[in-house]
Amino acid sequence: MSSHGLRIAFFGSSLVSAYWNGAATYYRGLIRALHARGHRVTFYEPDIHDRQKHRDLPTDPDWARVVVYSAEGTDGLERCLEEARGADVVVKASGVGVFDELLEARVLDLKSGRTQVVFWDVDAPATLERMAKNPNDPFRALVPRYDRVFTSGGGDPVVLAYKDFGARDCVPIYNAVDPDTHHPVAPHPRFDCDLAFLGNRLPDRERRVESFFLRAADLLPEKSFLLGGSGWADRPLAPNMRYVGHVYTQDHNALNCTARTVLNISRDGMARFGFSPTTRIFEAAGAGSCIITDKWQGIELFLEPGTECLVAEDGLEVAEAVLCLTDEGVRQLGQAARRRVLAEHTYAHRAARVEQVLGYSSGLEVSTHEQVA
């Protein structure tokens, strides 16, 4: 490995667009932090789902090189694979969106004495449940061949499940906050409401959105609710609920700083496995939001229920929290959440952990971010 930082080739869904791509915030935070620690990342992403037309990063970032390849045929992808040969670390993320099976097999051809190959699972519960249901899933035979598996969440249950499939090593690298991206800003009238929820409409999330968010709106007709994310346009909503469509990353701070409270709802699999904090939790905490989250095992590793966030079992408890919170309570919970994530849960912390697991030392300490209050 280079003494001047690692050269990392990263195959993922998209770095430049968060459109139908919830992993974008995670990729950006990690890769920016790795760059700050002296590593060089090339991010390879396919041109699919109109993401290049809905870019959050209009120009490529200065902290990563971005290569977009065509989804029409595999020639472009093969060129990317050949270019990645000889990197110190090659990463294949889950859910690239096209040629996933091909990529999962082909990146293993890049392994050598100098190149580690990592599978980075940003939706481990879904991957594990898929493999468990299908003994012929081609990825099952590949898991033991990767040098290691990183996951964006799941804790011990996911680690044990991956090791049961033969993984040599499995390490959660949790979502976190990038303090330079998510921070307090002035409120914006567009996002004024008593409770906001931001999330794309997905089959394994919709039932829980109904239970926690839509139910709370029904119970509190005098309060205002705001729904953001792609795919909800044809969903009937209560009169006290406003839908604002896809919210671009640059507007997340304004939403989080305007809404009186912000709701986090896990997807089905992540709630079952636990230990899977979403990117939204850290974005909201970084902005100093008062967070209400659905209940899942392990929340206290990230935020302390009752003092840094509120935890709800169902829509009734969400409604009770919205109704009972005082302005002072909202302020105190938001400030406490921000202090906690800046002290323990930044992407600089996560990047240092990645280095440690990869067996590399940059010699850099992780400093507590300034302006914690």
Rank of each mutant, 00 (worst) to 15 (best):
P172T: 08
E222N: 11
L77R: 04
S70K: 02
L342Y: 08
P46G: 03
M270G: 11
G274W: 01
Q116F: 00
S361K: 09
G334T: 06
R106V: 01
G155A: 06
G38T: 01
A321I: 12
H182C: 08
D251I: 05
H49A: 15
F191N: 10
L15K: 09
L110D: 00
P189A: 10
D50P: 02
R55K: 14
E104F: 07
D180F: 10
V366F: 03
R280W: 05
Y146C: 07
E355T: 08
A351R: 05
K223I: 00
F150V: 06
F302S: 08
R145I: 03
D268W: 11
A321Y: 15
R40N: 05
A284E: 06
R130E: 12
Q332N: 09
V96Y: 01
V354I: 13
A105G: 09
A186T: 11
D169A: 15
A23Q: 13
E365Q: 15
G286M: 04
V247H: 09
G298N: 04
D204Y: 11
A284R: 02
P58V: 13
D164M: 09
R201Q: 10
A84H: 00
V122E: 12
L325M: 14
N21D: 04
F275K: 02
T258S: 11
D327R: 12
A216K: 02
R79C: 07
V91E: 01
G199N: 08
L333D: 05
C309F: 06
R260N: 01
H183A: 10
V89F: 00
N175I: 06
A124D: 08
T368D: 13
Y146I: 07
D50N: 15
D47C: 06
A319Y: 05
T115M: 05
G359K: 12
E320H: 13
R140Y: 01
I173F: 03
G76Q: 00
D137M: 00
R338E: 09
V311T: 05
M241W: 05
Y44C: 10
D180S: 14
S276R: 00
R242Q: 12
A126E: 10
E328M: 09
R55I: 04
V262S: 12
C257R: 03
S152C: 11
Q335F: 02
T307Y: 06
L102Y: 13
P184F: 11
D327F: 09
L301C: 15
E313T: 13
H246E: 09
F225G: 01
D178Y: 11
W20H: 15
A176I: 08
F191D: 10
A233H: 13
E101A: 13
V341E: 02
Q250F: 08
T368W: 11
Y243Q: 04
A336F: 06
P277L: 03
L263N: 01
F119R: 06
K92Y: 07
D180L: 15
L226F: 10
V149H: 04
H183F: 15
L310Q: 11
W296K: 07
R145E: 14
V66N: 05
N175W: 08
D56S: 03
E308D: 06
R280A: 07
V122R: 13
Y248E: 14
L195P: 13
F191K: 03
P239N: 01
G229P: 04
S152K: 02
H188D: 15
D234G: 05
G12K: 03
A259V: 03
L358H: 02
C80H: 04
G12T: 11
R267D: 05
E304A: 06
Y347M: 08
P277A: 00
G97N: 02
H369N: 10
F165V: 01
A9T: 04
V107E: 03
D88A: 08
R168H: 14
